[in-house]
Simulated scan of single mutants.
Amino acid sequence: MAAHLDPRLLRGFVTVAEELHFTRAAVRLHVAQQALSRDVRRLERELGTELFVRTTRQVTLTPDGERLLPHARRVLHAQDELLAAFHQPRPLLVDLNSPGLGTPRRVLHEARELAPGHELMARYESGLTGAAGELLAGRLDASFGRFAGLDPALRAGLDHQPVRFEPMAVVLPEDHRLAAWESVPLAELAGESIYAGAGNPRTPEWTGLARLLFEGRDIEIAPPAPLAVGEEEFQRIMARTRNPILAVTEFPALPSTVVRPLVDPVPLSCVSLVWRRGLTHPAFDALRRAAALLSAEMQWLRRPAGSWTPAGDDVFMASHG
Rank of each mutant, 00 (worst) to 15 (best):
V75W: 04
H176V: 15
Q88K: 09
V171P: 03
H109R: 13
R41D: 10
A190T: 13
H118N: 07
R146Y: 14
R105I: 08
R236N: 03
P304A: 04
P201W: 14
V75P: 04
V107K: 01
E134A: 04
A148H: 14
S143L: 01
R289W: 00
R202C: 03
N200D: 14
L294R: 00
V315C: 13
L135N: 00
H77E: 12
L43F: 07
I237T: 11
R38L: 05
Q88V: 13
R73G: 03
T257N: 07
L108Q: 04
P226G: 12
T56G: 14
H77I: 13
T241Y: 11
S307W: 14
L186T: 12
A228N: 05
F22V: 09
H71G: 03
E215S: 10
E46F: 05
R211G: 12
T309Q: 10
D314F: 10
V170G: 06
D313E: 08
R202H: 06
A286F: 00
V31A: 03
S143I: 02
V16I: 14
F284S: 00
G117I: 02
G306M: 08
R146K: 06
A187T: 12
P226K: 11
H320Q: 10
G138D: 00
Y124E: 04
P265I: 05
E297Y: 00
L114A: 03
F251T: 11
L136Y: 05
T23E: 09
G312T: 11
L268I: 11
A72R: 15
R105N: 05
F147M: 13
P304N: 05
L189D: 12
F144M: 02
L172Y: 10
L262S: 14
V59T: 14
V315H: 13
P265K: 01
V59M: 08
H160Y: 14
R236G: 01
T203P: 00
A115T: 05
R11M: 11
R211C: 14
A239R: 15
D264N: 12
L9G: 08
S98C: 08
T309G: 15
E125G: 09
